[in-house]
Amino acid sequence: MKIEMLSSIEPSEASFILTSFMPIPRNAVTLLSSAGGVGKTRLALIMAARHVMETGEVSALWLTEDYPGQVRAIFNAMAADGLVNPDALPKMALILDAPPQLAKREMGLFKANYDEIQKIGDRLIDIGARFVVFDPLLAFYGGNENDNSEARVFIQAFAEWAKASQITTLIIHHANKDGASRGATAFHDGVRARYELSFIVDDEGEPDIDKLEMGYRKCALKKDNWGVRKHLWKLTDGKDHFEIKIATPMHRPEPKTEGMVVIDFPENVA
C-alpha cells in the first residue's frame, strides 16, 4: 500500500484536449453515447484528426463495426467537405484485430483482463498514440450490460489503464431509446466526462430535415468531473449543448411524377 501525505504532493490542474472543438479530459476516459446511425464514428474521426493536427501525436481508432475501406472513404469525403484535415491521415492508425473481451467471467468471478489491456497500451505507446477510440463499448465487454458491479470492473480497468499509459481514451456506447447511455449506470459513473450525440429536432420533436440535410447534429455534455465545462462554455456561450457538423451534406431528391408506374393491387387478396 502506497501512502503519501497530502502536504507533500505538488498541486496540478486537470488538463484537456480538443479545447477549441469538443473538450475532453487528457489521460482519462470519456464516453460518447448515441443511437445507431446518428454519426458517432464520424465524430470520432473528426476528433482523432483534430488531435493529430493540434499535437502532432498519433490517434488510433478501433472501429469494430466498420470495414477499413469504408472508414477511409468516409474520411476522404469528410476531407473534401472540410470536416477533417487530410494532413492528419499519416498519423491516424486503424486497429484491425478482432476485439478482445477485456472484462469477462472466469471460474465464477467477473474480472478485468489486465494482461490484455496492458498489451494494448504497450502497442499503442510503441506507435506514439496518445488518443484512442474504442467503438463500441460492448465489443470489448464480456459481462452483463445491465449489471453495475460487472460494468464497474470494466470501466475502472479502462480508467486505470488510461492514467497509467497516459492515453486519452474515448469509448463509444450505444444509447437507449431516450438517448442516454444504455445499460448499467456504472458505465456513466466510471468515466470523467460523457457526451450524448443526437439528431436535431424541430418544435414537434421530429428530426429537423434541413439540419440533417446539412450534416448537423446536437451534442450535449452529460457528465463533467474535472472541469470540461469551463472550456466548453467558452465555445458555446455558457451552454452544455451545441450543434456540430459531422457529415457531408445530403440532397433530397426532387419528387418524380413523370414516367412512374402506378400498380393497383386488388383488394382482399388471400
Rank of each mutant, 00 (worst) to 15 (best):
S20M: 08
P86G: 07
K211I: 02
C219Y: 03
E116L: 12
A184C: 11
N268I: 10
Y114R: 14
E65V: 04
V133P: 01
K223M: 11
R182I: 06
L197C: 09
V269S: 12
V201T: 15
K2A: 14
T236F: 12
E10Y: 07
A79V: 01
L32I: 09
Q101H: 15
D122E: 15
I244T: 06
I17Q: 01
G56I: 02
G56Y: 04
F199S: 13
I200L: 11
N144M: 02
T30S: 03
V52Y: 06
N148H: 05
G128F: 03
S8Y: 10
D189W: 03
A270L: 14
H51C: 07
I246V: 10
H174Y: 07
K245W: 01
W161G: 04
R123D: 14
R50Y: 02
V52P: 01
E243C: 05
Q70R: 06
Y114F: 14
T168P: 00
E196Y: 12
F75P: 00
N148A: 08
I155K: 00
P266D: 15
L83E: 05
T30W: 00
E204G: 15
E106V: 12
V262P: 10
Q101Y: 15
F154W: 00
W226N: 14
G179P: 01
E150M: 12
W233L: 06
E65D: 05
M47H: 05
K40G: 07
L170G: 00
Y195D: 01
L197E: 08
C219E: 05
M250I: 08
Q156E: 12
H188R: 09
E267H: 13
F187Q: 01
I125A: 14
G128Q: 04
I120H: 04
D208A: 15
R72F: 12
D210E: 13
K230G: 11
I127T: 02
T236I: 13
N27G: 07
S33L: 07
A73V: 09
S12T: 11
A180T: 15
A157Y: 00
R130P: 00
E267M: 12
L212Q: 13
Y141I: 10
V58Y: 09
S7I: 07
A14R: 00
V71Y: 03
I155A: 05
D202G: 14
R229N: 11
P23L: 02
A159R: 06
E204N: 15
G190C: 08
R229S: 15
T19W: 04
G215M: 03
I263P: 11
F265M: 14
T19I: 09
G108D: 04
F134G: 06
K119Q: 13
L221K: 00
D87N: 11
L43G: 04
M1Y: 12
I155M: 05
V269W: 15
D135Y: 04
